[in-house]
Design a protein around this nucleic acid. Structure first.
Lengths: 212, 212, 212, 212
DNA sequence: AATGAATGAGCATTCATTCAT
DNA sequence: TATGAATGAATGCTCATTCAT
């Protein structure tokens, strides 16, 4: 019987236990550093089983990634289904908050993502990354495009750079919420809500003083 | 005699060969994945020596990190020594280009930094990271502060968020130059110079259309 | 119900599929190297079934061996039923060709035999081997004995050694047809028919020049 | 340092202990079935060491094979250095006895050889086999050739078949001395010396009765 | 001070076998 | 009766570290 089938047929609770253990391990130690021994111990299953389910380490990673991607897509879909009748800056603000909620509900998924970006020993890394990025970039790109058409952003705005900048801030913001060491001191001084508002203000009006 | 002393007294060429090999290995494979076997082979020294010099794997990493931090500090100092008589946005633009030059001259150092951010198996990680960040944040923070005092930026600008945003864009921009997979398509469409100019323009004036 | 009975009652096609898969696996990889996983995949049955049928790996091997021995016996019987009214050398020549035909129809059976000879991890190996050898030796021995009684071979011929020699040549000849690496160059230079005739000539007249 | 160098520099006693243990394991269980665990236990060294010495399992096998081949070559050289002033049948008889002495001094080497012939999972099998066979065939071929030139064998003798036949008997004879199960009953009835003499007699004069 | 041989724990993976369904 | 999920021991192999020379 196909090995993946075996896993799919497991009781839901067990499936989740296994996937959680695997995600935990990969998120914590990266691909190469992840130990299947620790994984199975955390999941409470026999070592052989995990190979029956996923074939090999790459298979485990693929399953974990796919599962996580699924969750990300759901989150994005939820945003997209939001009414888009508001101003772009309101939308972006909402996107920030949705992202924040996601990383707080699924911190391990986000850590997995950061590993995917920096590590070089991940099996299908480039493929996975590009599948992920197309998802995200397309999403933010659409918002920008719509705003441009509505005249909500200045007509001479360099779109590629704006998109990159948006992504960068978003990414860094989420990263900081998952890895507190990045925000040693001042994360606690203001609420996330205020911080997001601050970002939006800068993105909207820029840093230069208004011309008289 | 203190083991570290032993390493310090080595002929410079050998020291550099050893540090380069270690940096290469850590940057390529992360902390956990780095193989001391490969390191000593690349450095052309005996396996025992590296333990005599640095004690253990952690010690090697600490030495590599310290060496890299040194290089970063030098680069920063060089920027600071630049005349600071220009507008903040010109300064930031220069900082971008200096950073770009640094990552292109020392790509391994930057990869080491990305590992430091994402991996969790690095000893003393939080300490190392915060030492790094205080360096960078202090530097950019000074620039912002000076600009504020000179009235080059709007007075109601939320400083913390501005600083964070600056860092985020800078970081992402450099990361993209080191790990090309992040810039699937459009990195090649415009020169780095143009891209930086685009970022600056957004940072300066914001994305919203000018009010009439 | 006896587990072996279970197997016997299977539909013939399934029985053959299972035995073929097992023979294939043992012949290819030897006893220790044979993988029951591969076997059941090739046979298209469940892993548990094979243990229900044969108990354990040894049981599988025993069944395969027994089945193969059966085929060998049939082949021998067919030779024996041949008219034996001819000269011993003609008979031996025919035996060679029959053996050749057998190994070409059942190369896996012969490979199983070679494993039996060389491997030492086969359960009951000595027993199986001796049962096999008694079969073959008895058969050739009978032919030799009859020839002696008819005066077709010289009266001072050392029978044990002659028998051994016959077996040796036969065995090697068949082995060479199954494992081509044994016949690096010259198997292809002359037809099997000619080669057999060459053997017979030597066996008949010896290598020494005829005395005047 | 080159791994092979490491092994070469070992104290002789240790080298021999390790090689003996490896030879024992391979001869007993074949290549695939050989367990490095058992090997190191028998040799009394750490598991890691064997990989330091030989790199991997293939390397171990290569070392064992090379060592064994060396011994075989020495034995052959000793035969060749014998005076060759005698009749071919005397020479062959001596070759039999030398081979017998060798297999009794080095039974494991011969078992290794039989594995080489029958197993299909040995790394460089075809290469190793052909290197071996060229050694042996060349040797016996030379003897036959010389005899032919001297007129010691009949001029119409098919040389290829004669060579094959010689090898077959020799091989089987030696095999029987190493694996007693092949000679269930009658090995003990006559001395090896007599048996060899029997073979020679048949090879010389053939099995057919002398013509009047 | 420098070497590199020795070590055993740990790695990913495969295995024969059991057993509840 | 047939199934295939579960298991843990064993596989070949790499590792960081120690230590005698």
């Amino acid at each position: 019987m196909s090995p993946r089938k075996t896993f799919e047929r497991l009781p839901l609770a067990k499936k989740e236990r296994v996937l959680e253990a695997a995600l935990h391990e990969f998120a914590q130690h990266g691909y190469g550093g992840a130990s299947i021994n620790r994984m199975v111990e955390r999941a409470g299953i026999a070592k052989g089983s995990v190979f029956q389910y996923f074939g090999d380490k790459e298979g485990i990673f693929a399953a974990v990634f796919s599962h996580s991607l699924h969750q990300v897509k759901n989150a994005l879909r939820r945003i997209r289904d939001d009414a888009d009748d508001t101003d772009i800056f309101n939308r972006i603000e909402r996107v920030f908050h949705t992202g924040l909620a996601f990383t707080q509900n699924h911190p391990l998924v986000y850590r997995l993502y950061t590993h995917l970006i920096t590590a070089s020993d991940i099996p299908q890394r480039d493929l996975l990354l590009s599948s992920l990025r197309s998802e995200g970039k397309f999403f933010l790109g659409e918002i920008l495009q719509a705003a441009m058409e509505r005249g909500e952003i200045r007509s001479d705005l360099p779109m590629d750079e704006a998109l990159f900048l948006l992504e960068a801030v978003m990414d860094r913001f989420l990263m900081a919420t998952v890895m507190p060491c990045l925000e040693s001191d001042f994360l606690h001084e203001s609420s996330p809500k205020d911080r997001v508002r601050g970002f939006i203000r800068i993105l909207r009006h820029g840093m230069a003083p208004e011309k008289p």
